[in-house]
Design a protein around this nucleic acid. Structure first.
Lengths: 205, 205
DNA sequence: ATTCCATGGGTATGACCATGACGCAGAAGA
DNA sequence: TCTTCTGCGTCATGGTCATACCCATGGAAT
């Protein structure tokens, strides 16, 4: 049983349809969320109307826990991408749960720590040239059985903060070099090792 | 008494001189740190040899706790900028402390959550034009009694990922507009409201 | 098949900004 | 005082990338 199921003990999850907002950037958090089943993504809305995808959450993930503990307005929004089962845990419930399951504190710390790690990577990547940001993103994404990613250039661009044109140019070049192969709405990583090599030129010397 | 002093209970802090490394990007963490006194900064080293300052830690801050809980190689390094008193807490000690002070778990979660918030802001800022990144940085920094910041253009540039030239140009323009006043190694925020306005054009509509 | 739309690919233009260079002024040390 | 170093202002140059536009093609619906 996934560890966070303890959070939903003796309560019922709420069901979200695909494309529904779970929480909104800017609002004060009254609870955080346990995504028991489904997929959702959290993103930051920028002034320009752009959206920067922060993370794709899957079954077993917590969401919105940072703003909740910090008790400041949410820095990102979250939207389901498919049908989801979600537990909302507010302060009173969390207190109760911690009383009954004090052993949850450490995993919770670990979970937040992992978020910090992911965000730190983002910060470190932010000033890299577009090609490296794109390659890193591709390597970070889970692939299907055949090692294919199913995403459009547009989506990649939104995630890494580059225009579709740039994504197309980079992927086209990598394709010609044989490092990967682009399909219609999909990318096949032919030579992950080579990609890793060009994504991580961060060598301490 | 600062809350984290409980972490150092019955032990003695280690004294660091200015400019000493506390931990190094890439190494496995065996402990995290409580900066009881002094100032230190954590930064990410990029491939290019650049360093991106993540945070400036002051008395009462924890450091390196994310990698510690996550138990993965450190994503950043930390160096003192002045003489510091630092407690190092390893896993065994933390277990002990949590047994004696279970009430520390929640503040710890809050602390990590705050880090997540700060990093999220970084990520959200990354693709903004240089001027906005700079203004945001200035507004985030603590000022001295007269509302002055003591930092060089070079330092600002490293923190926000811009060249010194760009920082000088932006500050020069803001100075001419009367929003702030630049001195030798210092910046005086004359009109914070105006700055805030140009830093946060992120309007949900 | 035909139509329509999303996706992918290309190009020209210009914005933004890093780089390297130079000069000048304030600060610090001899 | 003189020297040296650091911080700041500015320039020309070039690279990277966003924007806007165009066209080709895959896929789905009619």
């Amino acid at each position: 049983m996934p560890i966070w199921d303890l959070l939903g003990e003796s309560r019922r999850p709420r069901r979200y349809g695909p494309g529904q907002m779970i929480y909104l950037q800017g609002e004060m958090p009254s609870c955080f969320y346990y995504l028991q089943q489904g997929e959702a993504r959290s993103f930051i809305s920028l002034d320009s109307g752009e959206e920067r995808v922060l993370a794709i959450h899957r079954s077993g993930d917590l969401m919105g826990e940072a703003s909740f503990f910090d008790n400041c307005p949410r820095v990102s929004s979250a939207m389901t991408t498919e049908e989801c089962l979600v537990f909302a845990i507010d302060r009173g419930q969390l207190d109760e749960i911690f009383l009954r399951h004090p052993e949850l504190a450490l995993p919770m710390l670990q979970y937040l720590a992992r978020t910090v790690r992911i965000l730190s990577r983002h910060v470190g990547s932010a000033s890299l040239p577009a090609q490296q940001r794109i390659v890193r993103y591709l390597l970070d994404q889970p692939t299907d059985e055949q090692g294919q990613l199913h995403c459009t250039h547009e989506e990649i661009g939104q995630a890494v903060g580059a225009s579709r044109v740039t994504v197309s140019r980079v992927l086209g070049q990598l394709d010609r070099e044989g490092a990967l192969q682009t399909g219609y709405g999909s990318v096949l990583l032919r030579n992950p090792e080579r990609l890793r090599q060009m994504a991580e030129p961060m060598m301490p010397d």
